[in-house]
Structure formats: structure tokens, C-alpha cells
Amino acid sequence: MKLRRCFSIFAIALVGCVLGNGPNAFGQAEVADGFQSLFNGTDLSGWVIPEGDGGHWKVVDGVIDYDAMSEASGDKNLKTEQEFTDFILKIDWRLKQTTGLMDIPVVLSDGTYLTDRSGNNITIKRPNADSGVYLRGDSRAQLNIWCWPIGSGEVYGHRNNPKTPPEIRAALTPRLNADKPVGQWNRFEIILVDDRVTVMLNDQLVLENAQLPGIPEKGPVVLQHHGGMRNGEYSPASSLIQFKNIWIKPLD
């Protein structure tokens, strides 16, 4: 009888680990590795909610949920109260759904766009959604979250700037598209040291030691608002997104 009971307990524990309810789901590995949690799974303590937001940045079923409908008159992004310099950041995210079709350009491996004979960007209509993570509060140092073929993790603010040196634009362009389908959870692991960023997306290296020109020495982690309603419909690149399991390890 004792043997059967012990086996039952072991089976329940094993199933719990497989389903993500084991010890690591509660951050024991992160805590042991010196990480601190930026989200308690219950409320937005430790975050600065945009003034006048109207409850659109909220916690639903243990995750940060956003519907791209913030009523704030100014900055609509959600940011941490704390500011950070060098760090490792782990953050899980998923796009809930896409919104409409948009003309999406083809980004080449050097960060430039595929063009036709006249020099015009070649685009393909695709459904899209759009958000991102600002590093040290710098909108230019945003790791994009979207549905472009180039994949999430690129740094649009610098990669899209023709004045950015070619080698920097290329380094800020993802090596591969490591995104999971819309509706599934993804994980960024972001390492920022000085002005250099390395990004893993779903255990795939997408950026390696890429330079972020002019990034501040210190700043908050920011979750991006994008898009919203236009004429009663969502714009084609709205941030219908959720975040969870947000951990940071300062490297100071």
C-alpha cells in the first residue's frame, strides 16, 4: 500500500513538471541564479502604469495582458519603476491575435530591404501584430515583437535607419526567424552589457553582441504599446499581447 501511494505521489509530481507546474515554474532556478522577479503574477506592483490608461494594461489569469486600447494621452507604454544598467532579462510573451493586413517589406540579412528595379521596396501583404521591449527605456533600442518574416528580436530603430553604419544594421538584424506561431508563448533571453546586446529567442541565437548606438547608461524595462483602434477597427499592427515570467539579473 505504501509503495503504491509513493508511486502515485511520484507520478503526480512528474506530470506537474511536464506540464510546467514543477518547481522551476515558480522561478526557483532563476532565484538560485541571482535573478529578481519583475512581475508577481497578481498585479502591476513595481510597474508605472500610463497616466489615464483606463485599465487596459492589466493582469489576467496571472499574465500581463494588453489590448492596445490605452486611453493615456501621452506615453502609453508600461515600464518598470526600477532602472537598470547591465543585465540579463528573461521574459515570456505571446501575441494573442493578428489585426488586419499590412504591406510588409522583405528585410535582407544586411538589414536593408529587397527592392524592385526602380528601387522601391517589395512588400507582401500579411496579417500582423506589433509590440516590443525597450532596453533602458530607449525606443531606438527596442527589440521588436511582430509577424514580419525577419522574425522578432530585431532592433528596428537602428536597423531601419539608413544613417546607421552598415555593419551595425546587419548585426541588429535577426540571424533567423525563431518565432512560434501567433497564440503560442515565446521567450526572450536578453543580455545587455554596456552598449552591446545579445538575444536568444526560444533558445535560438538571433542577435550576437550587437551594438546599440547612443543607448543610455541606465533606464527602465519598457513593454511597448503599438497601434489601436481606427474607424472602429484595430490598425494592422496593434499590440494585442501578453507577458509573463519576467526575471532580471543585474550585472553591475
Rank of each mutant, 00 (worst) to 15 (best):
M1E: 14
L3S: 12
R4K: 14
F7K: 06
F7T: 14
I9A: 12
A13G: 09
V15L: 15
G16H: 04
G22M: 12
A25E: 00
Q28G: 01
A29Y: 02
E30P: 00
G34S: 04
F35I: 01
F35A: 06
T42K: 13
D43H: 04
I49G: 02
W57A: 03
K58R: 12
V60L: 11
D61G: 15
I64Q: 07
M69R: 14
S70P: 08
S73M: 09
L78V: 14
K79H: 09
T80A: 09
E83V: 06
D86R: 13
I88C: 09
L89W: 02
L89E: 06
I91N: 07
W93V: 10
R94I: 04
R94D: 04
R94G: 00
K96T: 12
T98I: 09
T98L: 14
G100P: 05
G100D: 01
P105M: 08
V107C: 02
L108Y: 04
G111S: 04
Y113H: 05
R117C: 07
N120K: 10
N121V: 07
N128L: 14
G132A: 08
G132K: 08
R136H: 11
D138G: 08
S139T: 11
R140M: 15
A141I: 12
N144K: 11
I145W: 03
P149W: 05
G151W: 06
G153F: 03
N160M: 06
N160Y: 10
P165T: 15
E167D: 15
A171Y: 06
A171Q: 10
L172G: 07
L172W: 00
L172P: 01
P174M: 11
R175K: 15
A178C: 01
D179E: 09
D179A: 11
V182I: 15
V182W: 12
G183I: 06
N186E: 08
R187E: 15
F188Q: 09
F188H: 06
E189D: 03
D195A: 01
D195F: 01
R196K: 09
V197N: 02
V199K: 12
V199W: 02
L201I: 10
L201R: 13
N202C: 11
Q204T: 03
V206G: 00
L207Y: 00
L207F: 03
L212C: 09
K218Q: 15
Q224F: 01
H226N: 08
H226M: 04
G228T: 07
G232R: 02
E233W: 13
E233C: 10
S235A: 14
P236C: 10
L240G: 00
I241V: 15
I241F: 05
Q242T: 11
F243P: 04
N245G: 01
I246G: 07
K249F: 11
